[in-house]
Write a protein that binds this DNA or RNA. Structure first.
Lengths: 227, 227
DNA sequence: AGTAACCGTTACCTCAAGTAACACTTACCG
DNA sequence: CGGTAAGTGTTACTTGAGGTAACGGTTACT
């Protein structure tokens, strides 16, 4: 019964920010460990990298899955930071698509180990329950779905396809990027161009079939894309 | 029987077929175990399902990864068996695309547990080395790449994009299917239609930009698609 | 002074993958 | 027929990584 209902004991709040910072520190250590020892690092490796022993890690992450999830979120942040400007930028539609795609590719190109770790390594033995990467893909797809839906509605078109479209696009770019990262048989610019071409044509065809004509070079930006 | 070959020593050959059969049997047991106990089965579970103890399993599969790989290959066979006819079928291009996509979706719809096991469960703790699902995706993508490349060359177009195209398409359908399987918010036919629309428009746009016009309803089949 | 939060350690537990050692069966070979 | 190369199977073990227990030290609010 030590839980006296006094005022908000400052001792409880004092660390609020500190804990966050510590988690971030361990996430960084994990990323460093991954870079050093490949994508199959264990908790001991991570702890060692952070200059600490295992139990300390477990005070901040309930689970290996929890740690991996945090790493995934960090990676998503990096990704979003890079893609945000591309999403918001102006310019022709075709160019903007290409820039967004290229932003994604540039991130995975710069952090191949981290990328593999997040996308492939996933939860080592814990079952499907908490899929690490699914969360992030869903976040991106959801963002995209909103944008696409807004566009479709702006043109008075059926917006029911926005979600499948978004997931289709995410999978498309992700898988093509994955392949590219493994066997780098073409330049990044080249792949970005191919992918953007597919996407642009799909979009253009869809609009055409609804009677809307868009010039690929039109700098049209009828909607605010990001809040 | 009556395998009376006067070769070197028939004792070595006698089992050749039998081993294959036994492996297949264990693969089936794994699939059954997955259906029963979810995608996170262990080797003991599989062995029990097969009515056998663990070491027997390890006489036929070097590894957990090896077993999983075999399961993945089996799943790919199922998939290919279903998609083969759709690939070879005649009919309009737009219809054929839709039929291929729908064939894929029907397979994952009918075997959701197996699908999840293969695509997500992957290698439990063995590192990235032998990615289970990557092999299968690559196989499908390679098949597709050949078809696309043949088409592009038939129209005297740059065929360098065939491979990225193929991987993009595979990722697109796979990810959209994945999403659909989780939250079934639309009918399969509906999703097939959306995806086929995207693909068709992308294809049509590509051809248009090269000066080729194709009617979506044209039953054109200029190439044999499967050997 | 008391105590609630953190810091950190070493030594342990657990559980599933994988192995050792041992015994039985079949059927080809000389 | 004895020998042997394959396969059948078992129980009981080792190993390694995830995760925990129990202990002690430090800071700073009350």
């Amino acid at each position: 019964m030590a839980r006296t209902v006094k005022g908000p004991d400052a001792r409880r709040e004092r660390w609020k920010g500190h804990r966050e910072q510590r988690r971030a520190e361990f996430v960084d250590a994990t990323i460093a460990a991954v870079a050093k020892k490949g994508p199959d690092v264990g908790m001991d490796d991570v702890a060692a990298e952070a200059g600490v022993s295992k139990p300390v890690l477990y005070r901040h992450f309930t689970d290996k899955a929890d740690l991996y999830l945090a790493v995934g979120q960090k990676a998503t942040e990096v990704l979003m930071d890079r893609m945000g400007p591309a999403l918001a930028a102006d310019g022709s539609i075709r160019d903007r698509i290409e820039r967004i795609v290229d932003a994604y590719l540039s991130v995975i190109e710069e952090n191949p180990n981290l990328y593999r770790f997040v996308v492939k390594g996933s939860f080592a033995d814990r079952p499907v329950e908490k899929d690490v990467v699914a969360e992030d893909k869903n976040l991106i797809a959801a963002t995209l779905a909103r944008i696409i839906g807004d566009y479709l509605r702006a043109f008075d078109m059926d917006s029911g396809g926005a979600e499948p479209w978004a997931h289709a696009l995410v999978g498309m770019v992700q898988n093509a990027g994955d392949w590219w990262l493994d066997r780098q048989t073409m330049s990044r610019a080249n792949l970005s161009d191919y992918l953007a071409t597919i996407i642009w044509h799909a979009l253009d065809g869809l609009l055409r079939s609804a009677g809307v004509e868009i010039d690929p070079a039109t700098p049209l930006t009828p909607l605010r894309l990001v809040d």
